[in-house]
Design a protein around this nucleic acid. Structure first.
Lengths: 110, 110
DNA sequence: CGGTATCCGTATCGATACTG
DNA sequence: CAGTATCGATACGGATACCG
């Protein structure tokens, strides 16, 4: 029951933490994407944060990056088989999010 | 495909964010717990962080708190029906965490 | 196009001490 | 037992400008 700081839940939490991480993965579950495609679909993300998260996810083995040395540059981001196993998790998040009352409305008795 | 900053995934991410949040929920999925039980099972958490997270989760309607006005004090924390619907999500996190290589080992070919 | 570099504000986490 | 008070560290997210 007690989990000693590196239980499965904690390890996963560490990977998907962050405001944008799960949204990046969600977008990539729809297939390979380019940097600019992600920046567009994740409206509001700054280039630094996007690059940070992509680097992090790559280091963690959840996605892979393919650079085509052409001009103009072309880079593809794709989930690895490991990353694709997050599909269930993202689906669970989406399912729960839909059951959620809109915004921070207090579910008391108003 | 594009999610506009408050898509289901984003809303869920906001709720389960934080280093300890999912672990608290995980423990509570095992049944009602007292403050000190949580503090014990979540080894390493500070009282402030635990109280903060519990308050947050309560405000978000994911758990409810029952105070027994006895001495010494006795407080119970229980997941609400809404909070219990996180079971699938936590299960997915646990399942993924078990498929995960131990620690930050690069899954390349060494 | 696909990033880096810089700088900044703040949320979050954390330890420790103390209290009703 | 169940928290609160305080203070500090830092990681995270964000805006803007610029480079290969």
């Amino acid at each position: 029951m007690a989990c000693a700081g590196d239980c499965p839940v904690a390890r996963t939490a560490r990977l998907i933490e962050g405001k944008w991480t799960t949204r990046i993965i969600r977008d990539l579950l729809g297939g390979t994407k380019r940097y600019s495609e992600l920046q567009h679909s994740l409206a509001g993300i700054s280039p630094k944060v996007l690059a940070d998260r992509l680097k992090f996810l790559e280091r963690e083995g959840l996605l892979s990056k393919t650079v085509y040395p052409v001009v103009p540059p072309h880079t593809d981001y794709t989930l690895t088989p490991l990353g694709m196993q997050l599909a269930d998790l993202i689906a669970a998040m989406a399912a729960f999010g839909m059951r959620l009352p809109p915004a921070g409305a207090a579910p008391r008795n108003p």
